[in-house]
Design a protein around this nucleic acid. Structure first.
Lengths: 335, 335
DNA sequence: CTGAAAGCGCTAACAT
DNA sequence: ATGTTAGCGCTTTCAG
């Protein structure tokens, strides 16, 4: 049998209520009794039973976190930041990785709900936001997705992917490129993939580039898909005349694309320029160093965690809150 | 007020025990009553209260997982595997990242304990194993650390780092190298770092290489430390005559070292050979492709999760269990 | 300021 | 096979 609050009460000669009060610090207790309680706690080696507390208070101090793929440095950096700020207010993170898979994502969200997490932070969900909202009743923060009007307790933390992609188009045209490849993400599933694609192509159009000068293909943000897409392109690619530039929808995918280029002995950027998206840590150590768009995952994560903590600890309603972060072009050597 | 098991019982005209029995599937219930219960559950939209169940059963179906740095691909791959197999038996993972810091690690372990996780999987802990054992009372699986004799409910899943490093020395000497740099990890803190160092140096000695031919320096497994260590080496390094080989204690650190080499215009392996350790996903996409030692994190994670699940679900005692996995040399282009 | 007591929602003896 | 009931350990009114 474990030592409980009752044992402490008896041993200290006080009531269980008093013990509880010194534990929760919510009511004033005379320092005399307080001392006695602390002493009893030490002497008996008491540790509060979280399960009982959870049942009584109907909260667990656990935040559910979903990521599409923890193996992607973009997300692991985010999770690290989330975990760190949550720990600062003694909240725990339960992690769900859905392996880029919509079905597992739905299962995972359902799992969190049945575990009765206090709140949910969904990073880059593939689910439609309205479906997500339909499932979730606890406070929700959606990271890396644009806000959708709603009446629910939801906040958004995101960066403007359309403008990020647009700045790539501006830059590329300014550099003199006139032929383009766009290696997009899964645009039907992920609105950011869509935004990056349209931000790029529409801006190209604004500069008078004909649609025929931009070849679009679709992957899924992974290294492998970048590699495969570029490999396919290279079967017919000829850099003679003016070389093309490839705008690839994520850094990790851009890395894959660069591998395909190197495999075929194409020089970057001489034979083809490459621009990525996300600015993950490793991007500046690729060869050549990758030109990319900063997608501020760490700031997004910190903001998300703070919003969640506000909702949970300060009873702030998340309705209508959204934090928009800047996406800035980072010019390096690959283009 | 939420709908409880009592409401279901009343609505279905049965006792709460019967409802509980159909929910937990532990006792046989006539299919008639079962139907009625399910129907009541649907009609009233009942969802079991996990907090109450946890209190009663004294378990939470939550496994605490510690990693030194989720941002290191080696660990994120491991966490992904852990999460996936745990989810298979509907266990949740609460993640703690201690940012390569011993103090936070201790805090994190303490945090898990006070959250009353059902079990703890500690991946590559920096704490002394006996200190860890002194804190933890629940089932414990230690990943990526060699077993220590004990009487406690602990299992180990690990690979033989000494032999892994020894195979590097064998290979390097066989290739004709006679000058060596060993970029070690934090050997006082991490016994694997120690094992990789001694496995390498002692095997060199076995081959008749004098100790003076192997220069050792110490980092902390990070990209940056690999970069800095190599930069220092390069201040006086001269590849003339026979080039040296560098054995670097982790792939991510080896990547940093390679950056330093490239920055100084040294060619790998012509001017210096480089060998890493871990075989993370990206190692085969570095330039040149990194020769390294396979450190089977995924298998380790899967084994660890299964052992934990055995302990938790099949009441298997972990005492004396240890799974040793092979570390095989993977020869690529950097050496 | 402190204590008595009710009860959170569930499971598992135990009784029938 | 099903029902009754006693708690799990804590927080929190409500009295005093």
């Amino acid at each position: 049998m474990n030592v409980t609050i009752k044992d402490i009460a008896r041993h200290a000669g006080v009531s269980t209520a008093t013990v509880s009060n010194v534990l929760t610090q919510k009511k004033y207790v005379s320092s005399d009794l307080e001392q006695r309680v602390f002493q009893a706690i030490n002497e008996l080696g008491y540790r509060p039973n979280v399960y009982a507390r959870n049942l009584k208070t109907n909260r667990s101090h656990i935040i559910g976190v979903h990521v599409p793929d923890i193996t992607n440095p973009f997300f692991s950096e985010g999770v690290k930041a989330l975990q760190s700020v949550a720990a600062g207010e003694s909240y725990q993170i339960v992690l769900y990785d859905s392996d880029n898979n919509l079905e597992s994502e739905v299962k995972n969200i359902a799992g969190m709900i049945s575990t009765q997490v206090d709140g949910i932070i969904a990073v880059a969900p593939r689910m439609q936001v309205d479906e997500l909202l339909a499932m979730v009743e606890v406070p929700l923060v959606i990271v890396d997705r644009p806000p959708l009007p709603t009446q629910r307790n939801v906040a958004y933390v995101y960066a403007d992917n359309y403008r990020g992609a647009a700045s790539v188009a501006d830059f590329l045209v300014g550099k003199g490129y006139r032929r383009f490849y766009c290696l997009a993400g899964p645009t039907e599933l992920v609105c950011n993939a869509e935004a990056r694609l349209t931000g790029f192509t529409e801006t190209l159009r604004l500069h008078g580039i004909p649609d025929t000068a931009c070849h679009v293909s679709y992957g899924d943000f992974t290294f492998d898909s970048g590699y495969e897409l570029m490999k396919a392109i290279l079967e017919t690619y000829d850099p003679a005349g003016s070389p093309a530039a490839a705008f690839v929808s994520s850094d990790i995918m851009a890395w894959g694309a660069m591998e395909a280029l190197k495999e075929k002995k194409f020089k970057i950027p001489r034979d083809m320029g490459v621009v990525g998206y996300d600015n993950i840590y490793f991007s500046s150590f690729l060869y050549p160093k990758l030109t990319t768009v900063e997608n501020p995952i760490r700031e997004m994560a910190v903001n998300a965690a703070n919003l969640m903590l506000d909702a949970l600890e300060r009873r702030r309603n998340l309705l209508g809150l959204s934090v928009a972060l800047r996406s800035a072009l980072i010019v390096r050597k690959s283009c």
